[in-house]
């Protein structure tokens, strides 16, 4: 038996909106640690890892580890029916073939339940090694989204370079080139407006902008995004999910042959 009650149901709505276009079907894993998901896009270029820790739920009952295969587009359709202020409860029986999403309005005057069919998905869990990153950039998520959107109107790939000057996002296309440099800026009124660059050594990597743009659909989850880079390793683009966890997108770089 599984019963997870999330007071801030809008977090789950936002999580689904951020992954539904990247991944079609995925297993949600439920354990004492929390509610998690790890899945690749169909071309195995990107991987998404979500963790919502059990402590972040108002009520968290998971009698035994459970893996629930869901079509993320269908799950997003159901969660779209929850109000932004609604409390969302996820319920499932051990060995059952459905999951129920219950939506309660804050004043308890409207209660809805949506039952969705589960699916069998071959689970492919990847081991993600702990990496020492050459550079970690923390910046406003809206700024990062704006940069990815702007650059994708010029080119298909972005070169992200971190030096002691700052972080540079560059692209080139048929009509020309573009370079955007963001410098460290910690003298801001609000901490979420800061740009912080931790560099062990300079690093430069090339990525497909199409995927970066897809990751920025997680922008509503967090004011800040963290971009972790190491030579010839997938970049990690991380958005915190309130105080309860994270959504991390891993993107394989484009490498010289």
């Amino acid at each position: 038996m599984l019963e997870l009650r999330l007071v801030q149901g809008s977090l789950l709505k936002k999580v689904l909106e951020s992954v539904k276009d990247l991944v079609n079907d995925a297993n949600f894993d439920c354990s004492a640690t929390g509610f998690s998901l790890q899945a690749m896009d169909s071309s195995h270029v990107a991987l998404v890892a979500l963790l919502l820790r059990s402590e972040g739920f108002e009520h968290y009952r998971c009698d035994r580890n459970l893996s629930m295969g869901m079509n993320l587009n269908n799950m997003a359709k159901m969660l779209k029916c929850a109000g932004n202020d609604d409390i969302v409860t996820i319920k499932a029986d051990d060995g059952g073939d459905t999951v129920t999403f219950m939506f309660e309005s804050p004043t308890q005057d409207k209660i809805a339940d949506f039952e969705m069919k589960l699916m069998d998905i071959d689970s492919e869990h990847l081991g993600i090694p702990e990496a020492e990153f050459q550079a970690i950039v923390r910046m406003p998520s809206a700024e990062f989204a704006r940069i990815c959107k702007d650059l994708s109107s010029i080119g298909d790939t972005v070169v992200i370079s971190v030096t002691k000057e700052g972080v540079k996002f560059s692209t080139r296309g048929d009509i020309g080139t573009a370079n955007i440099v963001c410098r460290q800026n910690t003298t801001v009124d609000k901490p979420e407006d800061a740009t912080v660059i931790e560099m062990q050594e300079p690093v430069s990597l090339t990525f497909a902008l199409r995927y970066m743009n897809s990751f920025t659909k997680a922008t509503p989850l967090s004011n800040q995004v963290t971009i972790s880079l190491s030579s010839e390793l997938p970049v990690v683009v991380e958005y915190k999910v309130a105080e309860m966890g994270y959504i991390r997108f891993y993107l394989a770089p484009k490498l010289e042959e």
Partner: peptide
């Protein structure tokens, strides 16, 4: 042009 890498060449199945 650089070639698109694959996640499975970085992270192994467990």
């Amino acid at each position: 042009d650089p070639k698109q890498g694959n996640i499975l060449s970085f992270f192994k199945r467990v």
